[in-house]
Nucleic acid binder design. Sequence first.
DNA 1: GGCACAACGGGCCGTTCGGCCCATTCAGAT
DNA 2: ATCTGAATGGGCCGAACGGCCCGTTGTGCC
Lengths: 211, 211
Amino acid sequence: MSGRVLLADDHRILREGLRRSLEAQHIEVVGEAADGDEALELAEALRPDVVLMDVSMPVLDGVEATRRIRQRLPEVRVVMLTMHADETTMARAIRAGADGYLVKDCSTEEIAETVRLVAGGQTAVSREVAVSMLREVRSMPPEVEEVVSKREEEVLQLIADGCSSAEVAEQLFISQKTVKNHLASIYQKLDARDRTQAVLRAVRMGIVRLG
Amino acid sequence: MSGRVLLADDHRILREGLRRSLEAQHIEVVGEAADGDEALELAEALRPDVVLMDVSMPVLDGVEATRRIRQRLPEVRVVMLTMHADETTMARAIRAGADGYLVKDCSTEEIAETVRLVAGGQTAVSREVAVSMLREVRSMPPEVEEVVSKREEEVLQLIADGCSSAEVAEQLFISQKTVKNHLASIYQKLDARDRTQAVLRAVRMGIVRLG
DNA sequence: GGCACAACGGGCCGTTCGGCCCATTCAGAT
DNA sequence: ATCTGAATGGGCCGAACGGCCCGTTGTGCC
């Protein structure tokens, strides 16, 4: 049960360092991927026990890659790696189906231990991550994430930036009608009746940034 | 230089307590006012050296009363009294011309000392207030206050609360046209072109509260 | 007394907005 | 194989909005 591991990170140096560390801990690294798409392909081809996946990667985001891997290959576990214990990213990763969550400055022993635990069916997180999780759970009554779609979020952000419907349409290369459709959907989801209320709610919910 | 003092506070109990405390410190209390208007009238009639003024009072707000007293009677000093060391209220009070600012849970000795200092031409604040002031000064580059008029602020708040122009008019007992006029003025002052932008700026500037 | 400004208001007009109907396409879920 | 949902789009319409003109009243300031 040492575990066959696939590494997914866009930094070659980090991948090689991880490979050495894991192999020193008698964990077999069966492949390396440089982006989310490659991770998905290699996971299907190699069927590792665990994917050690960086959060931020080109082409396909680590969280999205995790979601797809867990969907198509439920027997493949995923451990997320990230620079900082960011609450919202962590929440997204866990909802995407990650079984482990590590911050990059943890020890190699900790990484190896987490890989073994996860390969054995357990879930595990760094101590830093555990602390963040408590904060997250305490402060978040419902699911705040995923209320509005990604496209709707873009529309909201542009509205918050001062754009009119026409300008949003221009920015996103879509018709004004589509913008209005997105807004209508947003109003329903956020229980708002106009752009002003929608933007205010979005600001309060942290969906958009201001200024 | 013990000082002739006018008390202005809407709570009789507090006024009487203050009177006893000050008289025990050999400070003469020449009158008591229960609201801002009365404070203004008595200040003109009695010409005290110092007015000990509560921030929140009926009819006329303590800060506004202070502004008018200082305007008409520059030789009358005002010391503000408040429940908490609230940064924005304090800033308003100081701009209105208050020479002292005390939180209500300070000792009677402290109050007496402040009254004497202010009567002698000095300015004085509680320790708690001094701390708040530092924060205030550090975080505020320009004058944020007074960009929009009080009425315009009310309109903005109601818009932020989700009201349409018609509903704002209803709430404030004015016509829709006047609301639109206020909004037009607000757009100019806040460099916004619609209610959404205006509310967002107002939120960022701390003019309105959300939720 | 005059001057500025806040607050109040009327009317007009073009644009925008939001609600309502509808259709197509494509991906993912069951 | 079907179905949901996201994203794209059209058309229509009434209400809301914002800009523009104009006015009166009151208060504070010089």
